[in-house]
Design a protein around this nucleic acid. Structure first.
Lengths: 200, 200
DNA sequence: TTGTAAAAATGACATTTGTCATCTGATTTC
DNA sequence: GAAATCAGATGACAAATGTCATTTTTACAA
């Protein structure tokens, strides 16, 4: 019997996946969570065989949870299940040693198959992901990402300086650098590009 | 027997909903679609009793489909099923005479109940939606929305002028007006606000 | 210890952006 | 037909943004 845990913030999908996978004769869903924090603590407690994990969840993202689990020596296998084939996400997932990365773009049956394959030790990746465009690495440093995230909400240079305790010139230098790295025209376009690539 | 049609671009959720609702003894899923265009033509052909419809789909949005259906005198009831409680979405849905607006935030069972209630002629709305904040009308004119959409991609004033054949001053006047209406600090924040409210 | 590389700051500059008051034509409306 | 309304335009101004060359500070590996 494969003991499953599901973390997914869209409750309708969570409950649907739960019901359907529970119907499989060789699987049982032993826990669910709607945010990363709950997921992390439950997984450490319940030690499921396989965790299905969404990325975009409140509090902690699925990638954060995967990172924590690997750091704390958990033996539960993690399969990332997400809408987004963003380069940055995939890159981080691989770095954190996940056992699978699937898009919410396949049928449920494929998912069940993937879980069984994963149990045998294989790593499972959606075919869409193996192509190059996904391999694009995030060119932005931590600091740059942080600043661009703030800029993308419309925060002004001044607001950013006072939150980060940097001088106005420094912030503008960072943004200038970001704009060049992303080949954008201005901060707004840079934010738009970075978002679609999953870099911020 | 309630004849259902489901339109949803996230295939995993589509197939999960399909399987689960088909299990209900009084329902049968007679068709599915992953984009608005397919959905529209299939619904006109199959004349299902109830359509579950996502909003954010390729080609035509769920709201576009609902609009078309009501214009063409379809008798199929439409239930919008979406992640987003955005004022603009809700406003448009109501204008187009949909029979329900549910968030993908409930359990599957609630969904099945809602469908049955809908069949009796009742209109079904997620309780989260009935509060005021959702009632906020889109304060932006068509033109303003169009310009803000362009600005949100990082297009400069100059690029906008040449796409719309307006003078640079006019574009800046529009953006200035938009910023005041949305109580933002700059175009980027205006875009961020408008997006979360579903106004662009 | 030196060398190298980030991270952060400075100053000077050109451009872009946001604001505001005012002006012109159309189109409605009374 | 006069008045109000609306989409655009203009010009002038201040503030914010983006660019670049140069410098300081810190960190850390050889």
């Amino acid at each position: 019997m494969i003991r499953l845990f599901i973390a997914e913030d869209q409750k309708m999908l969570l409950s649907a996946l739960g019901s359907l996978l529970d119907l499989e004769k060789d699987m049982e869903v032993i826990g669910q969570a709607v945010n990363g924090e709950e997921a992390l603590s439950s997984i450490l407690k319940l030690k499921p065989d396989v965790c299905l994990m969404d990325i975009e969840m409140p509090v902690l993202s699925g990638l954060d949870v995967a990172e924590q689990l690997s750091q704390r020596g958990s033996h539960s296998k993690v399969i990332i299940l997400t809408t987004f084939a963003r380069p940055g996400y995939f890159e981080r997932a691989v770095k954190n040693g996940v056992h699978g990365y699937l898009l919410k773009d396949g049928e449920i049956d494929e998912l069940a198959d993937a879980i069984r394959k994963c149990m045998t030790g294989k790593r499972i990746f959606s075919p869409e992901l193996t192509f190059d465009l996904i391999r694009e690495e995030n060119p932005l440093t931590e600091r740059e990402q942080q600043i661009l995230r703030m800029a993308s909400l419309g925060k002004t240079t001044k607001e950013i300086t006072s939150e980060l305790y940097l001088s106005s010139g420094t912030v503008r230098n960072y943004i200038s650098e970001i704009i060049q790295k992303l080949e954008a025209k201005n901060r707004t376009e840079a934010a738009s590009i970075a978002k679609t690539k999953g870099w911020i």
